[in-house]
Amino acid sequence: MSLALTPAGALVAIIIMAGVTYLARIGGVMVMARVPIGPKVERFINAMAGSVLVAVIVPMAAQGDWAARMALVATLGVMLATRKPLAAITAGIATAALWRLF
């Protein structure tokens, strides 16, 4: 099932995303009003949240060029050293740009 990339298709996709996101925002509160989230569910969600990012980044590094890979390495390095996301992202983007420039 997929949407054709017409203006209407894109609008539907955006509205669906907004709906799913809103449900996630209110879902926890709605559930808490009835059932508490158990430790098992919490472990699953905690592990899944980071795993989503891993599942996006790793294939990107596998398929990308060396500039993209070095950018990720720079981001990781600066992030671990400074814990500042903005500095880390800037370092990553600058690395990719410099790598391609030379």
Partner: peptide, 9 residues
């Protein structure tokens, strides 16, 4: 966005 479930809770 599943993390929002826990945050909201």
């Amino acid at each position: 966005n599943a993390r929002h479930l826990l945050m909201g809770a």
